Amino acid sequence: MIESIKKLGLNEYEARAYNALLDNSKASAVFVSKSSNIPRARVYDVLFSLEKKGFVTRSASKPIEFRVVKPLTAVESVSETKQKELDKNLEEFKVIAKTLEQKANIEADFSDSAWVVEGRRNIYSKIAEQLENTKENVLICSSESGLKRKKGYFDKKLASLTSKGVKVISKPSLSSRFVVFDKNSVMLFLNQEKGSEDQEKALLINSPFVANYFYLNGKK
């Protein structure tokens, strides 16, 4: 049980204290110290930390008693806090990325070139980059599960493109996986979908001739 509770973002002492309160609903710090084998000199710090994280509340009267917050309520609070932290970090990362882009000497013309991309995270990042510059159409060809995953991952970007009049086409396929951008470039997946995400490889080909070939065959 303690190991499961720790997965909620609590350390060893916090998990022990919360577990003790789960069994008793409310209790004094002395009781928590004895029942969870937490040194008395540390128990108040541990309980106050749990309160700050949203897992317990305390009484206003003395002696102070601590009451457990329902697990689902506590988890929702933790999730909301973590999401706010992620959103804040994401905005900071975007500012940093924009600053770096201004300094970077990035060649815009990659005509008739091919680049190997390894790892699903890197592949999806490159797809996102291509979608940013897409003006007319996108063709996504993959298995049913692959289409569902990509639509979920790129949901906001695809919705934004659709609102701008970009034609987004999804085609299920058991034999091939690729994404065509404006018939100018294509991201071609090179291995089986069932493999490890880290082992996944793709080839980004910037060639209207090749991209148009995949576009026409993928639409059939």
Rank of each mutant, 00 (worst) to 15 (best):
S111N: 10
G152F: 07
S36D: 11
Q192L: 15
Q199K: 13
I140Q: 06
S4H: 11
E92T: 11
F31T: 09
E129S: 11
E85C: 00
V43Q: 06
Y124S: 07
Y18H: 02
A97C: 00
D198W: 07
N133S: 15
S175A: 07
V43S: 01
E129I: 06
V95D: 13
L50Y: 02
K135F: 00
N105K: 15
A104E: 08
A114D: 10
E107M: 10
K150R: 12
W115F: 14
A114C: 01
S36F: 03
Y124W: 14
P208E: 07
T99E: 15
K135R: 15
E101V: 07
E65P: 04
Y18E: 04
S61Y: 01
A29M: 03
P71Q: 08
V56C: 03
N122L: 05
P208K: 02
K126E: 10
K53G: 05
E136S: 13
S77D: 05
I127D: 09
N206A: 12
V30S: 05
D155R: 07
T99K: 15
R58N: 00
K70Y: 12
K26F: 11
G195M: 12
L100D: 10
T57V: 15
P208C: 02
N133E: 11
I140K: 00
A202C: 11
E92P: 08
V56T: 10
A211F: 04
L131M: 15
K62N: 11
L86K: 10
T162M: 09
Y213F: 14
K126S: 15
K34F: 02
A211H: 12
